[in-house]
Design a protein around this nucleic acid. Sequence first.
DNA 1: GTCTATATGTAGATAGAC
DNA 2: GTCTATCTACATATAGAC
Lengths: 203, 203
Amino acid sequence: MSRPEKEAGTEQRILAAARTVFTRKGMAAARMQEVADEAGINKALLHYYFRDKQRLFEGVFEGSAHKQFDCIWGCLKESPGLFDGIRSFVAAYMDRMIEDPMLPLFIAQEMNRDPEGLRPFIDRGMKSRQRFVKLVEDAHARGEIIDIDPRELLVNMMALCAHPFIARPMLMHIHGMNDEAFRRMIIKRRESVAEFIIRSIRA
Amino acid sequence: MSRPEKEAGTEQRILAAARTVFTRKGMAAARMQEVADEAGINKALLHYYFRDKQRLFEGVFEGSAHKQFDCIWGCLKESPGLFDGIRSFVAAYMDRMIEDPMLPLFIAQEMNRDPEGLRPFIDRGMKSRQRFVKLVEDAHARGEIIDIDPRELLVNMMALCAHPFIARPMLMHIHGMNDEAFRRMIIKRRESVAEFIIRSIRA
DNA sequence: GTCTATATGTAGATAGAC
DNA sequence: GTCTATCTACATATAGAC
């Protein structure tokens, strides 16, 4: 409040615009001019707030990584049982990604481009991972599920949730879907994927 | 044979080099200079063989798309039963991608960048898709599997196969794997994924 | 804090010698 | 067919006025 300038407002508008453009085109293909246009300001102002393209990108990526991983780890740790944990995981992931369909591909793409540099951004939530492992081990000890490597299960869960978004253009073409049909498929998967997983691990 | 020039040889070397570079960095971030270096020739020669970057890229993408989709559709159509079809699909996909780990992400990435323009390149194999649908319907009619949308099953299969490659840097970091550990994970999945799928659809 | 104008670097593409 | 040298375009980044 000691700063009556528009600083915060503009910075957030820039970040939002950059998030839109970077997420859609990827860091390499994104243009600073396009970000400026999207934010309704001048190109030079981007450099005033974020010194260069790299820093602007990192501002965007940090938020994107949080958005994806908080959602992933969040509901895993809050669940009493494994099956409900899986159900809420899938539902939460779908709900989150349906409003941001490019997010999974964006993160995969940029992580691939610069694994070293971006690793720090996905370091949070590692404790939740441990809790998931315990959830699986307990379920197995109680005889509820077959013997399966928790990491393998987690990969399968992420795969089944994320892949339709990552391969969206391909799937839409292969199966002849339009945007609305794609949306319906996701809505349906919101229920079916969890049951698909549970069927294959139930003892 | 009527052409004793090195034409064909050079063109193939360029294509191979371009495939390496484009697949690793993506069309947007790839540099013609890097392709030239990789091929051990001059930049200008790229333009002699492939007029511009776009055409060179298309030459690469066509081959990559074939490599991925021939493998996908190929073993689906040759299988007598659904379960064996699934097993050979997973095995073939893993075998193919372990020697070309960037392929799935590359294709997803570029399809996302230019869906309209690249659609033609993934048009083959659509008849095999129909055969897969029939395979599923027959298995259901014989009471071998539960009632499941063939398209949904296909998406799940592709997801479970492709995603580890697409999210490789992320997975390696989350689970603390090095290249060798990643490779072992894939080898393991070559068997486990098929059983994972079959367990969840078996009646 | 925001703009216009400009500098700087680099990538794609061409011209022309060999 | 392959090279060196060069042109052109454009994207990032800076300088400086307001």
